[in-house]
Amino acid sequence: MGTATRGRAARHGLFAAATMLGAFLLAATFAIAPPPPVADASASENPAVIGEQGLTVSADAVLGDVARDAYGATAGRDTYIQGGTNHDWAKLVLLDAGWPVTDSNVAVFTRWMRQENGPPDWWNRNNPLNNGYGSGGGSGLGSYDTLVTAAEMAAENLLNHSGYADIRAGFAASAPTAQIEAAIWASPWATSHYGNGSHWSQTPVPVVQAPASAWGR
């Protein structure tokens, strides 16, 4: 064999060997399995594991106390009684009668109270409207044990007397103040009929608190 022939044979052998080595390395690369996923240490150590659909909490987990703001409430009657003013008494009568406690209704009622007893002593004889019903005085000159009783008696009288139907309708509908006031003037509540409005004022009535004793407190 000549020198040239031996050179070609050697190169051919090297090429074949290189080809076989490349094929072997390629096969080995695909044959090696990917390493297993590394476990999340935080998930294995934490008793609360969040999945896609929910949250699982260990039975041994301890929940801390939850602080909540304190609050309180009192019923409407108690609120008005505790307030203790002439405006509160007007609201109490409206509530006892089942009528809306609106600003316009309260405005009319406090004006009415002013015509019967002036604001400085609106609780006179515990009878703000000079109501004769159940007060034992007739003609509105009687008295009640407390302003709470006076509110109940005023509501009962207004609800049951046939002459107060228009007053009832006005308060029940929270009608315009002029409409309710005209019904009061035309009713038999006051023999003077408040001069058909000439003895009546539409100015705001000041808020005045009665003594706690007048409320039975």
Rank of each mutant, 00 (worst) to 15 (best):
M20T: 14
G98Y: 02
M113D: 00
T102R: 12
G216W: 02
R125Q: 14
I32F: 13
Q209W: 04
T177R: 15
P176N: 03
A4Q: 07
M113G: 05
D69I: 04
W189I: 08
P176F: 08
V106W: 09
P119N: 06
P128M: 09
N105C: 09
E152R: 10
D103M: 03
G138V: 08
S135K: 05
G83L: 01
D88N: 10
L26F: 11
A41R: 09
W99Q: 12
T79S: 13
P100I: 00
N196S: 10
H199G: 14
A18M: 09
V208R: 09
F30E: 02
G72A: 04
G22Q: 04
D166Y: 00
M113S: 13
G138C: 08
P47L: 02
P35Q: 13
P188L: 05
Q115W: 00
I50G: 07
L21W: 01
L94F: 03
S213P: 00
T85C: 08
G137Y: 03
Q53L: 10
K91H: 07
V207K: 12
F24H: 12
F109D: 06
I81Q: 06
T74I: 09
A9M: 04
R125A: 13
W215G: 01
G195R: 06
R11W: 05
I184F: 12
V207P: 05
H161L: 06
A23Y: 04
S42M: 00
N105I: 09
G54D: 02
A107Q: 12
W189G: 15
G64N: 02
W112M: 07
F15N: 09
A67Y: 06
A165T: 06
F30Y: 12
D166L: 05
A10G: 11
Q115F: 01
E156S: 15
L26A: 15
G138Q: 14
G64T: 08
P204T: 03
I180A: 09
S143F: 04
L158M: 15
A90E: 02
D69Y: 06
E116G: 04
F30L: 13
G195N: 03
Y133H: 11
A173Q: 08
G13Q: 14
R217D: 04
W99P: 08
R68S: 03
T110K: 10
N124G: 05
A107R: 15
A33T: 08
A154D: 14
Q82I: 03
G22F: 14
G83R: 12
E156M: 07
